[in-house]
Write a protein that binds this DNA or RNA. Sequence first.
DNA 1: ACCTGAACACCGTTCAAGT
DNA 2: ACCTGAACACCGTTCAAGT
Lengths: 246, 246
Amino acid sequence: VDGSSVEVPGGASRSERPTASARRGLDTRLIVSEAVRFIDQHGPDQLTMRQLGARLGVEAMALYRYVPSREQLLDGVVELVMDELYRDSRVDQEAGTWQEYLQRLAHAVRVIALAHPEVFPLVATRPPAAPWLRPPLRSLRWVEAFLGGLAGFGFSTYATVYAYRAFATFLLGHLLLETGTHAIHATAKLNADIEFLESDDLADYPRISALAPELSGGGYEEEFEAALEDLINRLQLVLDQDGPST
Amino acid sequence: VDGSSVEVPGGASRSERPTASARRGLDTRLIVSEAVRFIDQHGPDQLTMRQLGARLGVEAMALYRYVPSREQLLDGVVELVMDELYRDSRVDQEAGTWQEYLQRLAHAVRVIALAHPEVFPLVATRPPAAPWLRPPLRSLRWVEAFLGGLAGFGFSTYATVYAYRAFATFLLGHLLLETGTHAIHATAKLNADIEFLESDDLADYPRISALAPELSGGGYEEEFEAALEDLINRLQLVLDQDGPST
DNA sequence: ACCTGAACACCGTTCAAGT
DNA sequence: ACCTGAACACCGTTCAAGT
């Protein structure tokens, strides 16, 4: 309910008609959030400077006053979406334990990912602005808070870094897989998919056929929860071996 | 040494001059493997039908005899790269234990990912042809072998499915992060990266500054090994709780 | 100051025409 | 049978020109 907090003044008309409130007062932030909405609806490949301009009641060339290039616009999309974390109530309040802290953070990121399944692949694969940022933890403010949080709970620097890396890897793998099945193109493509290198017949793969329902079934939520708990247990072991303080 | 076994007859000239052996005898497979080589060198965004044609000594339009579209060509690239597994000696030979089997498979996939860091994001994010295929385990033959292998080691269907999902998630997260830092564009972009939504000053993030070397450092190999062992231990627990046989 | 028109150098893709 | 030329409908981006 609170995962899609990118506010854009305009209404929901998906025609080329510009919304009244967007007509005047173009602005970098407005452009980026309209891009987010567009990608949520049609996927990143469909996002075109001309189409985005049309939705904002403007020619494509006008966007270049506020955005250096399409590539940087996509970077802005990633940044804006991940910044929804700041508006998520569950990360605001103080956590009592580091386990609780990681739980809250993980769930908040998951909410964002599921709210924007078409954006998440960009979060996962766009080259980060700095080498210390591991997707999907792509914001400096964020990572700073993460490191500070764990340190506050008595993590050594070693344990902090270990936890950071493991946590990012966990989120990336799970959420990319989960959003991949939720994405628009996933279903759209299955219909029209003809393998042209070699045509596969499912009858040749008895084990897959037998397990098809289990393999394709959902259960992402339970999987996420279980793996998150495992990760936390794993970090507990590292903490125990390592001793507290810096 | 054996991770890049896509053989393409042509030489290594990167000009538009076609290689002698590729001049005649166009063919779907040749086109796809040339596309792999191109992406390895320049990344997927740079891949253009016209440029690929030029490398094969042909106009772009000629490619459409063998490849339905650029999109399907990219699907073919993913498939061809992951099929290198069949040519990897470490998955051929019989494994004595399921732990050994998973270890071999994981390392073989990692070799492929590192051999083609620009292709791996495609492996990770392209919509799979079927809902039972979880990236990066995208081949039916492959997944069939995986399921059969574990069943042969006494995994119940529940444990098999659990292992499949966990294994795929593990590989996806780790290898996408690792290839992300190895990718061409990662370094190319860092130089020219100017945040335009808000300019960040590293001095505002003391913990990141302090841990910068540890955060950005490599250590991917050790991380991979450690996490793989953890995963195997986790699967051991599931097996114990679950009991053997189908 | 902010937006537009026209233009440039590209794309993917189709199809009639060449050999 | 296989490739090409020309064309279509688009792209991202630049820049002089409009208001």
